[in-house]
Design a protein around this nucleic acid. Structure first.
Lengths: 216, 216, 216, 216
DNA sequence: GATGAATGAGGGTTCATTCAT
DNA sequence: CATGAATGAACCCTCATTCAT
């Protein structure tokens, strides 16, 4: 699913962490960061390549050295969040045994990543909608993958269908909305607290035995 | 909140239900219906005025006799859903006494409207994101208004803050996601059943005493 | 071969010579004329849509109401010359009996059209090369078609292969070069006389019995 | 006519055939060869500096050490063919006495070079058209020079004006077209045979006494 | 000399909106 | 009121050329 679609890998013959590679990788990261920031603020359609380039401190042409197109850049952001989430999930789940513990690990992994990457969360959860057919499709594939993961856990925790599948999707939607709520006025809301509230709500909603723990 | 922005009431000399007025109101409705259908299918940015006009069986210029802009047309659809929802809510709530009954009335009113107006639901809940700054803002204002309404009921049902406010928003987000899930493949999913599942999930999540009733 | 590729036919429901149709057809003709003029002067790549639009006295967007793309506009010019040539050939040949008379009719038909449409000749014979793959291919298809026609006549006149086929192509190339010579300095050269010289040269070169007649 | 425009002689401190100079001259030749190959295949506009550099096994920047611009590189190819042709002509003519023998020597010199340098022939005769104003002009100057040479011979052979001048140009055009015909499908056509056919055709067309000899 | 990442002007194209008919 | 041809700003993207290393 994460082909090198978004590659246009800066043409360096060396792949090691040599100075050369680092320099151009830095550019790519800078562009990605700039894109993330502008996309988060403006959304997909209101964001022009020129703005991204400007935010990254380079020229328009430079953008196209690192990304084949605007869409591919956006896609890279989607994948970035997905990968971060997946890594976090795998890391946390490995330390757990009981189904509920695994589920909780997954959920909290997701929300922790969202907390750490709030701009990214906005981009993916809010602005991917209405971007481009291919991007929407890509995001949807990911969401389905992820929802299936959660649903699987829910089933193992004794939550019956269709509560499991629908509940998994609903949970994603609820989170997205909360991120949106927070994004509207970051100073006014405490994203961490809100996310915790949602987790607890769903935990109870799914009828799981224990209580969702307070965040550390 | 619903200024006459979206009215663009065709300058008819007579204000009564004269033939003239009726005719142009029909045109407006036809355009609105066309827009609803095309927006639901294509989303905001992939929809051109030409498509709307064609679907409505009139010329491009005519569109602008009834709506000042593409955005205002979309906005009219948002408001259409909002008004339908609000009317349904008021109607149902008036017959209820207990706080929980009132809350249930509100929630089911919303979902019933979504069911009746599935295209509209797609337009508003899915495609409003990423459309235009003003539209997003408008939708957000409405969502806040509505969430406050639900939160109020939740509080009266004994659900404490921040579960009430956050929960209300989460509920909206969950619904939107379920509509999205359904929209991806209408034949595959039963929107009514999924919505009911979500309702039940939240009802339990909020810790409300009784059970969410099966849909009639 | 001449599909409606270059259509984007101005959306008029009526096909008759009504006023409406005439107006937009005039625009199309004006654009075609402008394109012909600018392409003839600047060549394919140095010509921008903006220049064409300006020369036609309209905006850039208007160009795209009549042609789907720059390439299609150019293609329309190629086809315009081709059709003019083919019509002229058919008209003249029908009045002839002997093979040589038919051949002479064809050749003089071509050169007469080139004379009448000197800009078009420049565009097609000089600037089509190096334009775009698809256009070059299109032109080449036409040239082959046409060369085969001439070669056929040559065979019937007793000119053996490969003189016939190669000679037909060579004749086209020679004409193109003469048009080029003339185009470099229209005042300095008499295209008609030069073309006549070429005709006579080839007539003799093919070993045909009679002499190429002086132009009327 | 052949200013040092196209020299861009790499600033080597030593002017003799020192190792340094030889090395960089090799580079220049490699680039020229690469350019010739790519230009012949792709044409002027579809060829990028990157492709040339890659084909030559060096970096883009290196290209600009040897040529001031893409156009100048192309120009060097034009001149390369011109020089080859001129050298061949001078060599062959010196051995001839009769005007017709001299003419024949010139013509066959040209075609022999075209045969030896088929890629170059494609580049100059086919792809120079539509490249750039300056290049077209340059090529045209050369063509005129060359046509004047041939015309001079024709006059001395008794071919009267305007047959001589026009005929000379026509001959160039015919050759170019034949090269084009061949270039479209090298396997299908025998360039040597076609060129011979053209020579014979023109020889007869000019009304020259003897017959064009079969190629050795 | 050699490199290749960086540049940015310029190209083709789209589409919401207007206005003369 | 209705029309739909006309508009032109704005977009994404390319590529010849430069220059710091």
């Amino acid at each position: 699913m994460f082909s090198d679609h978004n590659a246009a890998s800066p043409p360096s013959r060396e792949r090691e962490g040599s100075a050369d590679t680092k320099v151009t990788q830095e550019r790519r990261q800078a562009l990605l960061a700039a894109a993330q920031s502008v996309f988060a603020r403006e959304g997909y359609h209101r964001t022009g390549i020129r703005q991204i380039a400007e935010a990254a401190g380079c020229a328009v042409g430079t953008f196209y050295l690192y990304f084949p197109s605007k869409g591919d850049c956006f896609r890279a952001l989607i994948d970035k969040l997905y990968q971060a989430v997946m890594e976090a999930i795998e890391k946390r789940r490995s330390a757990q045994g009981a189904p509920e513990a695994k589920l909780a690990a997954s959920l909290s992994a997701v929300t922790d990543v969202l907390m750490t990457e709030q701009d990214l969360a906005r981009v993916v959860l809010i602005h991917a909608r209405g971007s481009e057919l291919a991007l929407e499709e890509h995001l949807w594939t990911i969401q389905k993958t992820f929802a299936r993961l959660v649903a699987q856990d829910l089933l193992e925790c004794g939550v019956p269908e269709p509560s499991a599948t629908v509940g998994a999707h609903a949970w994603v939607g609820a989170l997205a909305e909360v991120v949106n709520l927070w994004a509207r006025d970051p100073q006014l809301h405490d994203l961490r607290a809100m996310v915790h509230t949602v987790q607890a709500l769903f935990w109870r909603g799914w009828g799981l035995p224990s209580t969702w723990p307070n965040p550390a």
